[in-house]
Design a protein around this nucleic acid. Structure first.
Lengths: 227, 227
DNA sequence: CAGGTTTTGCGTATGAGATACGCATAAAAG
DNA sequence: CTTTTATGCGTATCTCATACGCAAAACCTG
């Protein structure tokens, strides 16, 4: 039998409590004290099961994402598109996920499951293993980045609804000197940045779709030149 | 004339000092006290010129990037490729740049200059303004994400050289159950993840090039369907 | 130049947060 | 029942950001 006093909590419990706090009050509110209080324990009790707060954050990141949904029937392109949307959706459920500083390549079970899922979509393509990884990494990078942008904007909008939407265009017009930045000024004149609050959100969505389209188009071309 | 005591420092000085600290000791070492010491002032003196540490971080982010280099002659594709490499290089000079939490769309002069530069590469293409922005945002997203990955790995390598390189493949093999993650297991068997320390760095570089290639290929196809 | 006004430099103090350390306690082993 | 071992957690320390208020400097008016 195992010696010593029986643990009343484990790392998973702590991670769960921490996630509950982050979901309810944001990642900034996740302190060792707050998490301990959430589970009715003393602060220092947590350190028996978690080496440091950094480690806890890593555990949170692993546990934050849902399991990847099963891919729908279809070719690799439809599947990867679906996958990218699913990643985006999963991140949107836990916006704080992107605030956790990453410490290395993924080793968490859930992250790996997502990776596997995306690689599965490419199974029937003639790509080499390294290329598949490249495609998936590139796509994940894009989705994460775009999600970060969306979440950041949504955050900024919450903080100060008045200062958003069409304000960005206005602000830029004051800063941008058409002589120094002609291309930007030109785009600015086209009104792309003058969106009201509602349209801005849709725009982020559209931008995501567009970027996704471009990337997958590139993959298709690459595969085409190979088959 | 302006009333009152003459300022001996300004926000730009503080930003410079903060950047010097970040360059030398990393962003984690940037505290108000440390920055003040760096410039031979008292801690609280800084607050006359900077509202909060967050504001200082934003200023640092704006000032961290070099001016965008002039684009070489060539078509949009060569230019965007060059631009992406230049962004990557600029970030590599200041790895801490990516650790600064972003608070909204870019308004710093330097960021806007980079944006303008990329849009300039697309000037002669038949894309609409919104599409140009989409292309550039997508590309920037990708470059930032990939840079983050590279920097993170380099960081991890510094922290513990032994635990890297081919270790990642080994670790994965212990975690991955081929029944639960068949596609990942397959890729794993191909040995893509078993790189020695040196090759890993080159691999990140190659992955960047590959992803960049895919994205630009997608843009090219998109433009082709339009011209 | 004296006095008033305004703005800066900065010492002191507060409060949050991470975490080292050590003791008391619970549970298994002998 | 004593010894061993691992846990729960109170106390204490250290690092930081930052509010507050006073004093010094530089301008203004008379």
């Amino acid at each position: 039998m195992k010696r010593g006093r029986k643990p009343t909590i484990d790392a998973a419990d702590i991670t769960r409590a921490a996630i509950a706090v982050a979901d309810a009050e944001g990642l900034a509110s996740v302190s060792m004290a707050r998490v301990a209080q959430e589970m009715g324990n003393a602060t220092m009790a947590l350190y028996r099961h978690v080496k440091s707060k950094d480690e806890l954050l890593t555990l949170m990141a692993d546990a934050a994402m849902d399991e990847p949904p099963p891919l729908p029937d279809g070719d690799w392109r439809e599947q990867l598109g679906f996958w990218a949307k699913a990643v985006l959706e999963a991140i949107r459920k836990r916006p704080w996920f992107l605030q956790i500083p990453i410490s290395g390549p993924p080793t968490g079970l859930t992250s790996l499951a997502w990776l596997d899922s995306a690689l599965g979509a490419l199974r029937d393509t003639p790509l080499e293993a390294g290329e598949k990884v490249g495609v998936v990494m590139g796509l994940m990078t894009f989705v994460h980045g775009e999600a970060r942008l969306g979440v950041t904007l949504a955050q900024g909008f919450e903080d100060d609804p008045a200062a958003f939407g069409s304000q960005y265009g206005k602000v830029l017009r004051e800063i941008v000197d058409p002589r120094r930045m002609p291309a930007l000024a030109e785009v600015l004149d086209s009104g792309v940045f003058d969106l009201d609050d509602v349209a801005a959100a849709e725009d982020v969505e559209a931008e995501f779709d567009f970027g996704l389209h471009l990337f997958l188009e590139g993959v298709a071309t690459h595969i085409g030149g190979r088959a």
